[in-house]
Every structure is written in structure tokens, then in C-alpha cells.
Amino acid sequence: MTDIKSASTPAWAKVTARVALELIEHEAIVLEAYKDSADVWTWGVGVTNASGHQVHPRYLDKPATLERALEIFVWLLTEKYVPAVVAAFKGATLTEAQFAAALSFHYNTGAIGRAEWVKSWKAGKVATARTEIMNWRNPPEIIGRRTAERDLFFSGKWSAKGLAKVYSVRKPSYQPDFRNVRMVDIRKALDVVIA
């Protein structure tokens, strides 16, 4: 369903189901609009109005389907995040694991273009790059994700198992209800979205 790819995008820079699953492993899904920790209206897999997809008021008290949230997520990755990863690694060829790790890092930090670890890796300083990726460790809760990205990029160790954390929204605060998480197998839904 979602096959957005520019002619200038290298073959290695494809958002496959495996790549999307890896990123979602580090995120969560909320099917209606909620306020994030910075009081920004958010929906789906961390999507805000700033992405170009109208979240609020579209999904306020109107939950979307899992397939719709995944479709927008894959679109957002492809349109807004893949080009920056491609630019940062210009002249290099990444494996699927390396691409997934770099894309996850960029989706979380927005900093792939200025990350020292990328420059070191491209210069052949692999051990230095492996250490430098862990410099991106604030807030401390992100260390697990950064470790998984490091292990994926430098060792090819995938962490996704096909399950996603899906939260409901508490009202009237419109905060995710972190006490009630459902683990949902999203592999079939991603297969529909990524055809």
C-alpha cells in the first residue's frame, strides 16, 4: 500500500516491515490524540502536527485503526526521515540492519546529520563510532534504545519480535495510560501497509 521511493534513494534505504518493526519496538502506538510529556498533541507512533499530518483535532476522541497509524508512520519515515539518513551516509552502502539502526536513531534524535558517530564510521573509525553512538544518552531512559541501535548497527543484532505496545488515553488529561498496555502483534497489519 505504501511504496513511496524517490529515484535518487539508494536500494538499501527501503522501509521494510522488518525496519518498521525495529523502530516501533522502541516506540509505542496510541490510536487517538494525546498530549506527550512536552504537552504536544501526538498520535500513532509519535506523530505530531509538525510532521505534516494533522493529528489534532483529527484524532481527538476519535481512535484510528492500527493500519492507519502504521500507514502514516511508514509514510512519515519514508518522506521525512529516510532522506536525511541517505544524506548523512552519502557515498556509503548500509545493510538493512545498519539502515534500521540509523533510521531509529534519527527518528528519536533528529540528529543523524550532525552525529559524530556517523562521521567516524564513514571515516573507517568503527570502534570510535561504536563508542560515540552511546554519547546520545539523555534522558537516561533512552539508554536501552541507544544500546539496541548500537548493537543493530555494529553487530546486526535485531531486537524486534513483532509486538508493539499499544496504549489507551486517560481523560480528561489526554495522557497515555501507561498502567494499561496491550502487546499487539502488528506483523499482519504492517504486511498490509508495506506491500
Score class of each variant (00 low, 15 high):
M1D: 14
T2P: 11
D3I: 10
I4P: 08
I4T: 10
I4N: 08
K5V: 08
S6E: 11
S6C: 07
A7P: 13
S8E: 14
T9E: 06
P10A: 01
P10N: 03
P10I: 01
K14P: 03
T16E: 01
A17Y: 03
A17K: 14
R18K: 12
V19P: 05
L21I: 02
A28E: 14
V30A: 09
V30C: 10
V30T: 14
L31V: 04
L31N: 06
E32C: 11
A33H: 00
Y34G: 02
Y34V: 02
K35H: 03
W41A: 02
T42R: 08
V45P: 12
T48V: 13
T48F: 13
N49A: 03
N49T: 02
S51L: 03
H53Y: 15
Q54P: 07
V55S: 11
R58Q: 13
R58P: 07
R58D: 15
L60N: 10
D61W: 00
P63I: 05
L66K: 05
L66Q: 04
E67C: 04
E71H: 13
L76I: 15
L76Q: 13
L77V: 01
E79G: 07
E79S: 10
E79I: 09
V82K: 02
V82Y: 00
A88H: 03
A88S: 10
F89V: 03
F89L: 11
K90T: 09
T93G: 12
L94H: 06
L94P: 10
E96G: 04
A97Y: 07
A97I: 04
A101M: 02
A102W: 03
A102Y: 01
S104I: 02
Y107T: 03
N108I: 11
N108A: 10
T109Y: 05
G110N: 12
I112M: 04
G113A: 10
G113Q: 12
A115C: 10
E116I: 13
W117Y: 15
V118M: 03
K119F: 09
K122I: 11
A123S: 14
G124C: 05
K125T: 04
K125D: 05
V126A: 06
V126L: 08
A127N: 14
A129E: 08
E132N: 08
E132R: 10
E132C: 06
W136M: 03
R137A: 14
N138R: 14
N138Y: 13
P139R: 00
P140V: 12
E141D: 15
I142T: 06
I143C: 04
I143M: 09
G144K: 09
R145V: 09
R146N: 04
T147R: 11
T147F: 00
A148R: 09
A148I: 06
R150T: 02
D151S: 01
D151G: 01
F153Y: 12
G156D: 00
K157E: 04
K157C: 01
S159I: 08
S159Q: 13
S159W: 07
A160P: 00
L163V: 07
K165M: 13
K165A: 12
S168L: 10
V169N: 05
R170E: 15
R170N: 11
S173A: 15
S173Y: 07
Y174R: 00
Y174G: 02
Q175I: 14
P176H: 02
P176S: 07
D177W: 00
F178D: 12
V181E: 07
V181G: 07
R182C: 11
M183C: 06
D185L: 08
I186M: 04
I186F: 05
A189C: 09
A189Y: 05
L190W: 05
I194L: 11
I194N: 08
I194W: 08
A195S: 14
